[in-house]
């Protein structure tokens, strides 16, 4: 394996014999459902897996949850808080599992964090260097769903749109529906820009759960040979 940038001091990527599969996509894209299906399929074939996601670090996850409730963090501070959360999981969960030969399934990775930061005005070069600590995954599946479809699924599930997933803090619109559409378009635009550089495997998430799963499974077999 290799790092995007300078990497992590003391970690030798050639010692990492496991695989890293990332699933990206907005809330309501079916990302988590697809993650579960993929894990079942891999374990069924005898592969050991480890799940990671955002805001799950021992170090700062509680503080991040707290900060999400109120609007107390500045933009740079929030970016760095998320980066700390990511780095903690990278070093304490992802890398040890990869050393032990596991398949690590990441429910979102640096791309969501980068897109969110950039949508909020962060400098692209700054963000890219910040996440130079990240390992290059073996496969990044990007489950892409149209904003209109996302709204429908989110409303069916929660009957309300999440403040942050609607990007309400950006002041795009005071109406959460309008803000959600504009914000998700912004994020999708960032993903489209990142696509060339990071080589996402984009899957049409507007299709049924079963056909999306089939598509993902094909790509996993194709790239990993597992």
């Amino acid at each position: 394996m290799r790092f995007y940038g300078d990497g992590i001091p003391g970690v030798h990527p050639e010692e990492l014999t496991g695989r890293l599969i990332v699933m990206e996509g907005a809330d309501g894209s079916g990302r988590s459902t697809q993650m579960d299906i993929l894990r079942d399929a891999l374990e069924n074939k005898g592969h050991a897996t480890v799940n990671v996601g955002l805001r799950r670090s021992t170090l700062v996850s509680d503080e991040l949850k707290e900060a999400k409730q109120g609007n107390v963090l500045g933009e740079i501070t929030r970016s760095l808080f998320y980066a700390t959360d990511f780095a903690d999981q990278l070093e304490n969960r992802i890398i040890p599992a990869l050393k032990a030969g596991f398949i690590v399934l990441a429910d979102r990775y640096i791309y969501t964090l980068m897109a969110r930061d950039i949508a909020r005005g962060a400098d692209r070069g700054w963000v890219r260097s910040l996440y130079g600590i990240a390992l290059v995954p073996d496969l990044v599946v990007y489950v892409k769903v149209s904003p209109a479809q996302l709204i429908e699924r989110n409303l069916r599930k929660n009957a309300t749109l999440d403040y942050w997933e609607s990007g309400m803090d950006l002041g795009l619109s005071r109406d959460s529906f309008d803000s959600f559409i504009s914000y998700q378009r912004l994020i999708q635009k960032e993903f489209a820009l990142m696509q060339a550089e990071y080589g996402f495997s984009t899957v049409n998430g507007n299709l049924t759960v079963r056909s999306v799963a089939k598509e993902i499974s094909l790509r996993v077999v194709d790239i990993l040979g597992v």
Binding site: G10, E63, A67, T77, A83, A87, E91
Partner: peptide, 30 residues
């Protein structure tokens, strides 16, 4: 804002050079 996380990380020796650096930078950024 960051103090709790920093002291938890230090006390439990959870910090690596990278997270040590990031958490201090978060403190500074705040």
């Amino acid at each position: 804002l960051i103090k709790k996380a920093t002291s938890k990380g230090k006390k439990r020796q959870l910090l690596t050079p990278t997270t040590f650096s990031l958490i201090h930078c978060t403190d500074f950024a705040d």
